[in-house]
């Protein structure tokens, strides 16, 4: 559906995207993840024909964006930077977009309703909050009732209710068979709705996998709490069990099983206050893959 092939983009000295390849499956929600500066926005803008790649290419339905007929009816997009004339009302902005794309005017009020902006539609965009601007972008993306949505950090500026609302809306849109590519640097937003994730770091692909598989694949380790943590750690290390982090009374073990650790502790007369398998979250997987320090 969306295909990125050996994409590279260099801005003067910055290598923003580095030989990146991935495919977005039709009818699924794909999360496009990476820390700030990973090259997500650049990649999405190349897909939309706004930025010229240095090499490689990105296609939608096997065509370059500029080859698409009536692109707004095929691909809807929400981009990071707001792009409204502040003097126009939200409704006028949509009228301009609809007129240029040959979309009937009646659709404007429909999409304003979809993003819950009907009441504020005639206010000047200059006075909109970030969240309202984000909703207006989404309204513009939905104008052409497209089968593909490309969304760059659409949750930015939304309050928790707004994020909840967005999640429900995206689920509903995906349930209608749409293909959605949605970027974020904040994991929890995406974890719950993405069928698949593509993780990038420093412009390179780190991982592409179904969300569930990725979370399962990366073990969160075993938490062991003990008043004699230091002694236990030495014993574990002698038994070649890898300890990944150690604090005053807490050890996190990367491999091994709870049975083995429990038995070793008992054999050495060490009291345990806690022995549990950490449930891995995508957040941890993400931080691990992109080489950040874990938060605990």
């Amino acid at each position: 559906m969306i295909e990125v092939e050996h994409l590279t983009k260099r801005f003067r000295k910055t290598l923003a995207v580095d030989d990146l390849s991935f495919k977005v499956r039709e009818g699924a929600i794909t999360g496009f993840l990476g820390p700030n500066g990973a090259g997500k926005t650049t990649t999405l803008r190349i897909i939309l024909g706004l930025v010229r790649p240095s090499s490689g290419r990105a296609t939608v339905k096997a065509q370059l964006y500029r080859q698409l007929r009536d692109p707004l009816r095929q691909v809807g997009s929400v981009l990071e930077a707001s792009s409204f004339h502040p003097g126009r009302s939200g409704r006028d902005h949509l009228h301009v977009v609809a007129a240029s794309a040959g979309i009937e005017r009646s659709r404007v009020d429909e999409v304003l309703g979809l993003v819950q902006l009907t009441k504020d539609g005639s206010r000047r965009v200059g006075g909109y909050s970030l969240g309202m601007q984000q909703r207006l972008s989404l309204a513009a993306a939905l104008l052409g009732d497209p089968g593909v949505l490309v969304l760059d950090e659409p949750a930015n500026g939304l309050d928790p209710q707004g994020i909840h609302w967005l999640r429900d809306l995206l689920r509903a849109l995906a349930a209608e068979g749409r293909t959605i590519l949605i970027s974020s640097h904040v994991l929890p937003e995406i974890e719950q709705i993405a069928d698949e994730v593509v993780i990038v770091h420093r412009g390179k692909l780190v991982e592409q996998a179904p969300t569930a598989e990725l979370a399962a694949r990366i073990s969160g380790g075993i938490r062991v709490r003990s008043p004699e943590a230091d002694r236990l750690r030495e014993i574990l290390e002698q038994a070649r069990v890898k300890v990944t982090s150690a604090q005053a009374d807490l050890i996190v073990v990367g491999d091994g099983s709870t049975e083995r650790i429990g038995e070793l502790a008992a054999a050495n007369g060490i009291v345990l206050h806690e022995l549990a398998v950490e449930k891995a979250t995508l957040e941890e997987a993400f931080l691990e893959l992109t080489g950040h320090e874990t938060t605990r």
Binding site: L72, S82, F84
Partner: peptide, 10 residues
Amino acid sequence: HGTITQTFLV
């Protein structure tokens, strides 16, 4: 105003 983005998308 960045509306060129929308113009080129259309």
